[in-house]
């Protein structure tokens, strides 16, 4: 039975990684999960300089999910390389670094800084965070802007580039095609869906940022639909995510056309979720006599 997959020439031992921002750089979940068992670790978004993020409250629960407006707090690329990448050095897993910025130059600075880092296997470009005022989603909601930033990053990147797409668009297929045409090696989707919650007793917004990105099991059908539409539109590999908590969820994404999947908010609910998803996929393959996981990718009829 083969669970290995390959994205842009990078081989993962299995198709499971984590949603950026839900797992730190692995350090905080090291106590719960053997990181060597993951297909890849995807780090929290990192910028060229430290970002303080948004005021609190930054998180709130909603029915079947949660909203967050962390605002991409991060320690900056220098600390990230010295501490987080160093921590990941000893693990036998692929490392995907999520990159954020306020301007194209910010992104390019980080991408260039990472070009000599041997431990970085892939780059995921965050053009879809809904919680920051400049940058991020501004590059991910118009096909022209996505094309421009993708091309610019591809000029400077040494590692394969995954463009992380926002669901907060009219036509996900158009965005997927734009990323592919601009040279992206892969796409990942979906980032969180912009939402809002109001505290009726205090008559205030539940989040200081007013809006936040929704994640959790409640968004899964939207995510599966978008992954399917993207898979119909492009040939580059897709990392599917959005509400995955179990192997059954992950398999829906794979059948819809995802080569790999990310477990996100489910880590907060169940710190062992990633390993259980990996084991559950293997069980499914055994039960259904699937020799190679590649036979399941896009196999929905």
């Amino acid at each position: 039975m083969r669970t290995e997959i390959e994205i842009a020439g990078v081989k993962w031992k299995n198709p499971v990684t984590v949603g950026s921002g839900t797992f730190g750089s692995g350090m905080e979940y090291d106590e719960f999960v053997d990181l060597n068992k993951l297909g890849a670790v995807t780090s929290k978004g990192v910028a060229n300089i430290p970002w303080p993020g948004n005021p609190t409250p930054r998180v709130t629960e909603v029915y079947g999910g949660m909203l967050n407006a962390i605002g991409l707090q991060n320690p900056g690329i220098d600390v990230f390389c010295e501490r987080d990448l160093k921590f990941l050095e000893s693990y036998d897993t692929k490392v995907i670094v999520n990159v954020c910025g306020k301007s194209i130059q910010d992104y390019v600075d980080v991408v260039e800084r990472l070009s000599d880092e041997k431990r970085v296997d892939m780059l995921e470009i965050n053009v879809s965070c809904p919680n920051v005022k400049e940058g991020a989603i501004a590059f991910g909601q118009k096909a022209e802007a996505l094309t421009e930033i993708t091309k610019e990053i591809k000029k400077h990147a040494k590692q394969p580039v995954i463009m992380k797409l926002s669901p907060n668009v009219t036509d996900i297929a158009e965005m997927a095609r734009a990323a592919e045409a601009a040279g992206a090696d892969a796409i990942s989707l979906i980032n969180t869906i912009t939402g809002m919650k109001i505290d009726i007793n205090r008559r205030t917004f539940a989040l200081a940022n007013k809006t936040g990105g929704m994640s959790g099991p409640a968004i899964k059908p939207v995510a599966v639909r978008m992954v399917y539409q993207a898979a119909q539109a492009v040939k580059i590999p897709i990392i599917g995510m959005g509400g995955i908590a179990t192997a059954e969820d992950a398999l829906e994404f794979i059948l819809a056309g995802a080569t790999a999947v990310s477990v996100g908010a489910a880590n907060f609910v169940n710190p062992y979720a990633t390993l259980q998803v990996i084991e559950g996929i293997e069980d499914y393959m055994r039960r259904n006599n699937v020799e190679d996981i590649k036979d399941l990718i896009g196999a929905v009829r």
């Binding site: 730190g24 905080e28 929290k44 303080p52 993020g53 930054r58 967050n68 600390v79």
Partner: peptide
């Protein structure tokens, strides 16, 4: 308000007087 409870999600921060040793910002 917390989500992960283990330091990964950065949901539950408090402003600090000095730059924090872990976050490298005042949180």
């Amino acid at each position: 308000h917390m989500a992960c409870g283990v330091g990964a999600c950065l949901g539950c921060v408090v402003k600090t007087k000095e730059v924090d040793h872990h976050s490298h910002v005042n949180n």
